[in-house]
Nucleic acid binder design. Structure first.
Lengths: 288, 288
DNA sequence: CGCGATATGTGGAAATTCGCGCAGATGATG
DNA sequence: CATCATCTGCGCGAATTTCCACATATCGCG
């Protein structure tokens, strides 16, 4: 039995079709078919039904996929260990962060890092679902919650403070009037800034809900209403004014890394830079 | 990273030399060297120091070997799962049993099994150290202790009863005289038959100690003294006579299998046969 | 001290594997 | 109903991998 065939198997089981699996593996679809076929022969099991629109796992294939996932997890541990020992600051480091933070705030602050290390490549992943560091979907992550996985190392590197913001034109034109509020949708009910907004809004209309902070920011800037926005994103925007602090909406910022990677020079360099750029967030009061 | 390279890595780490690893892998030593070299390059670590007498793991290689063992364990689980689903009674089944039981008692009772299933190959492993079923060193095992590993399924299929035996000529010639005793050495102190013998011997000399039951049996047959022997081995021997029962020395016989393999037709057939041939051991009193 | 056994390392031939191109089929789309 | 995109399947040439034979080094032993 060829262990590497399992790599193709898990990719195929996850992708659903030969072609998609081949793309993700950077291989040819005929190769995927051959390797998985050989695995079937080696194990003496039919793992997939060959359908015109894709290969669908048989019952045994699906059951095997669970066990193959254990193999993959162990492989990831091996890779993490190796990465954790590398002494040179080059290669690739993936950073996971909430999408708006990644795109609007983190992205423009990474240039000094890549400039300092010519061999370094960054992969900035903005994802609503926290990337799994154990499954190696990212190397380090910025999160707004304390990591729940006990196998990970988290360090609180600051606080994300919020204020109630509105478009300058709108606020100056309407002064003290009751303006519409803009907030998050149901999937994000329960986060502090949303709770604060609901309490603050009382009977006022919440004119727009979204799951994306960038959308929220854009809507506020367009004069659609008021929203609780992080100071780090809104304070620098000349088109926005802060009406009041939203102290209760404050969220902690955690820097999370897998222990195996903590000592990697490459990952260490990225973490140091993240700690450096978040320095302003560790001051008692942040904002304009 | 090629997952199959890890297979070569664990083999090399375990074998200690390219040549030995190549033998176990049924590959060429140059292949082992190249594959492990590629793994080193992929991980960016030097895993072995190339010595004239063998490749010795570096500190990182040794540490990685532990994690690679996890991969191997997961691979074994995959293989077990596949074997557990096979519907045909062919292929290979390995049986682990105490050496004397394997060679003298079990071996002559396996013929009907292979005769009934022409595609079946048996691998009978007589080993003092219980083969690890989790690590797939054997498929089923006969053991004289309840299995301690909670992940395994054990079934008590009988009892191994002992008697105090001596060579017929010796016993008839000396009648009631105090004969020498023969027993196990220190490594096996604590097993019931040895405790019984010690209690029974009192101040009599134990003229020979060994760790091997076959040796003990041969020595008894040669008229060297008396020993506690299993009835199943000694009772059929015309040259031996049983002087007394050793009820306290009775040991349970457990049939152990990994749960993944329990439903395999191949393994099931072997287990059924083992249960059949041990039927006499489930009678209240066993012997001549 | 020399000899045999066993080890690693090197270069070239053989075998295997891989990827490419194309055909055939299916489902979505206008 | 025609079209387009996407998927699987097959054959062939190329590239990679593997094995084989030989050279060289080291350890144990008489």
């Amino acid at each position: 039995m060829n262990w590497d065939d399992l790599r193709f198997f898990v990719a195929l089981a996850r992708a659903g079709s030969l072609s998609e699996a081949a793309r993700r593996l950077a291989a040819d679809h005929t190769t995927v078919a051959r390797r998985v076929g050989e695995l079937e022969q080696a194990l003496g099991l039919k793992l997939f039904d060959r359908m015109p629109r894709g290969w669908v796992p048989t019952a045994e294939g699906a059951a095997l996929a669970e066990r193959a996932a254990d193999v993959e997890a162990a492989i990831h541990a091996v890779a993490r260990f190796a990465d954790g020992r590398s002494e040179t600051i080059d290669g690739r480091v993936s950073i996971s962060a909430p999408p708006a933070l990644a795109s609007l705030w983190l992205a423009p602050r990474l240039a000094p890092l890549t400039r300092a290390h010519p061999g370094l490549t960054l992969d900035l992943i903005g994802d609503v679902a926290d990337a799994s560091l154990v499954r190696r979907e990212a190397d380090v992550a910025l999160r707004l919650r304390q990591p729940s996985d006990s196998g990970l190392i988290g360090r609180r590197i600051g606080d994300l403070r919020y204020g109630l913001y509105g478009a300058r034109g709108l606020v100056e034109a309407t002064a003290g009037e009751d303006l519409d509020f803009l907030g998050y949708d149901e999937r994000l009910d329960g986060v502090p800034q949303q709770l604060w907004l609901r309490a603050r809004a009382r009977d006022r209309r919440i004119a727009l809900v979204t799951n994306d902070l960038v959308t929220l920011l854009t809507a506020v800037r367009a004069g659609m209403g008021l929203a609780a926005l992080p100071h780090v994103l809104a304070a620098a925007d000349d088109g926005l004014v802060c009406l009041e602090e939203a102290e209760a909406a404050t969220r902690p910022i955690w820097l999370v890394v897998h222990p195996d990677l903590r000592r990697s020079a490459r990952v260490r360099a990225v973490m140091d830079h993240l700690i450096e750029v978040t320095a302003p967030l560790r001051r008692p009061v942040v904002g304009a």
